[in-house]
Simulated assay, not measured.
Amino acid sequence: MSIADPQQALRRVLLATLPGVAAMFWLYGWGVLINLSLATASALLVDTLVHRLRGRRVSDLSSLVSAVLLALALPPYCPWWLSVAAVTGGLLLGKHLYGGNRNPFNPAMVGYALMLVMFAQPMSQWPGIHGLDLLTGLQRVLGLHGDAPDAWAQATALDTLRTNKSLTIDELFSGNPAFGYFGARGIEWVSLAYLAGGLLLLRQRVFSWHAPVGMLGSLFVVSLLCWNGSGSDSHGSPLFHLLSGATLLGAFFIVTEPVSGPRTARARLLFGVGVGLLTYLIRTWGGYPDGVAFAVLLMNLAVPTLERLVAPKQTAVTP
């Protein structure tokens, strides 16, 4: 990050998520705030216990940022234990296992990927664009069987497109409620809200442009090259991929994470390019509809190699 004080930068990241939080609340209702409450409480508890066991007193907002991003990536109204387990697993395995200072993996994506692998069914239960009232939402989250409307949960646009075998893109967009104007219905506006928050962070120089531009640019190019129009075997337009799933959340709030990401500008650009390419490959031919989390974790593994690739070559000195 370009700001000298890391804690100030993290505070700005939290503030920049507010447009996305507001858009998600408008779209899904109270489940978004319930997720955020459970995730942040879990992060504070995990950090407090770990620091006490280590005999430290540390004031660090990085765990809170990871918890907020993870809560925004989880399905609204998911079971309470899913939010708690995601944050706990992400922080313990993605951050504190490595001392909490230079972890090689993004903690939020570690927690998300763990839940996706271990609990695929509840991770796929995304609601339609009508939220529940607070009481019904709490009942559902706590497993008290709150009454939800018929067809309340539905497949996401990315999942529908990935499993589509017979309908054209035009038929999907006109007949399936998961599709909006260009991308996933409603998520288009959430994505634009994340874009607004991300551009604000760029203006404030919280991070550089390299990783976001690399990710969005490579995803746009590969989806354009592989796009075959409106046929039933189409993998979606570039705009569809940019405005669906966690693309813009990932581009401005995930790949820019400074601890697990590269430190040099050129390596950050290559890191973003790799995340964009892997996201498209996983969405199109992989077993998961989105792919941002796994793409980020795979590129986390490649960070040392990227840093060596862009490092200036040392000239050998003849004794």
Rank of each mutant, 00 (worst) to 15 (best):
residue 193 A to F: 00
residue 231 G to T: 15
residue 117 V to R: 07
residue 133 D to R: 02
residue 160 T to S: 09
residue 261 G to Q: 08
residue 137 G to A: 11
residue 247 T to M: 04
residue 7 Q to W: 14
residue 257 E to T: 12
residue 216 L to R: 07
residue 1 M to G: 06
residue 57 R to H: 09
residue 224 L to A: 14
residue 188 E to V: 05
residue 15 L to K: 00
residue 32 V to L: 09
residue 4 A to F: 02
residue 33 L to G: 00
residue 98 Y to K: 09
residue 232 S to Y: 06
residue 188 E to T: 08
residue 86 A to E: 14
residue 264 T to I: 06
residue 233 D to C: 06
residue 271 F to M: 04
residue 5 D to L: 10
residue 237 S to K: 08
residue 109 M to L: 09
residue 17 T to P: 00
residue 176 N to G: 03
residue 81 W to S: 07
residue 196 A to D: 10
residue 139 Q to E: 14
residue 245 G to K: 06
residue 258 P to D: 15
residue 32 V to E: 12
residue 253 F to H: 03
residue 146 G to E: 12
residue 177 P to E: 15
residue 141 V to Q: 02
residue 305 T to K: 00
residue 243 L to W: 01
residue 173 F to I: 15
residue 113 A to D: 04
residue 83 S to F: 11
residue 300 N to R: 00
residue 193 A to E: 09
residue 203 R to A: 08
residue 231 G to H: 07
residue 310 V to I: 12
residue 279 T to E: 10
residue 248 L to A: 03
residue 129 I to L: 06
residue 214 G to A: 13
residue 75 P to H: 06
residue 36 L to Q: 02
residue 195 L to W: 08
residue 128 G to H: 08
residue 42 S to A: 13
residue 249 L to V: 10
residue 273 V to D: 08
residue 17 T to M: 08
residue 14 L to V: 13
residue 209 W to K: 14
residue 291 G to D: 11
residue 87 V to L: 05
residue 108 A to V: 06
residue 194 Y to I: 09
residue 24 M to R: 01
residue 150 D to A: 10
residue 241 H to T: 10
residue 221 V to W: 01
residue 250 G to T: 03
residue 252 F to L: 04
residue 44 L to A: 07
residue 145 H to K: 05
residue 104 P to V: 12
residue 54 R to G: 10
residue 51 H to N: 11
residue 64 L to C: 07
residue 178 A to K: 02
